[in-house]
């Protein structure tokens, strides 16, 4: 019992340390020029955990804050960052938008805007369905043998007559509906 608990605690501790360590090393190694992460993200600032702990940028509604900023800092953005440290009400609308776009690629309304892709999907779906139906007609015309005689009307009528003669299902089924005296269906 105690051993179990001790093992669990140690595991938990190690896990915490490892998790912290991996995040730290990711952000630390990202600060080393020439690291692989740096190669991928350039000079972009790592600002958060993102949705997976990887330094990637994706606009998502369930994880609103990507791990890195969208734009690499340039002179304009750095100047804006300096200005951002002051009173925000002194920023113009354009500056505010520029600051936003430096951090984020798309606004919520942009990445949630309907793409119209459903039309494409529906269209392709119908094309495939109609191709299937044409395949059936092709097979019917050139591949399948004609239907057997039993599908002809007179054959099916003869079959029905024989079933009545044999009194098939006389209680609730087909023969119970046939009037054998008057030779017609019961009203």
């Amino acid at each position: 019992m105690a051993n179990n608990l001790l093992a669990l605690t140690c595991k938990q501790l190690l896990k915490n340390v490892a998790a912290k360590h991996s995040v730290q090393t990711a952000s630390m190694s990202a600060n080393v020029a020439g690291s692989f992460t740096r190669k991928l993200i350039g000079k972009r600032e790592i600002v958060g955990q993102g949705f997976s702990g990887e330094p990637t940028y994706i606009d998502r509604a369930d994880f609103p804050f990507p791990a890195i900023r969208w734009k690499e800092p340039n002179a304009d953005i750095l100047a804006l960052r300096e200005k951002e440290k002051g009173d925000w009400s002194k920023l113009s609308l354009e500056e505010k938008k520029a600051i936003y776009r430096a951090s984020f690629r798309q606004t919520f309304s942009e990445f949630q805007a309907p793409t119209g892709e459903w039309k494409y999907i529906l269209g392709v779906g119908f094309i495939i369905l109609s191709a299937g139906i044409w395949c059936f007609f092709f097979l019917k015309a050139f591949v399948y043998a004609p239907l057997p005689d039993t599908f002809k009307k007179e054959n099916r009528e003869a079959q029905l007559a024989r079933m009545l003669d044999l009194r098939v299902n006389p209680i609730e089924g087909i023969s119970s509906k046939w009037d054998y005296e008057k030779k017609e269906w019961k009203k």
Partner: peptide, 8 residues
């Protein structure tokens, strides 16, 4: 000092 974050 993160204005973009507040709008987000």
């Amino acid at each position: 000092n993160d204005f973009a974050l507040s709008v987000r």
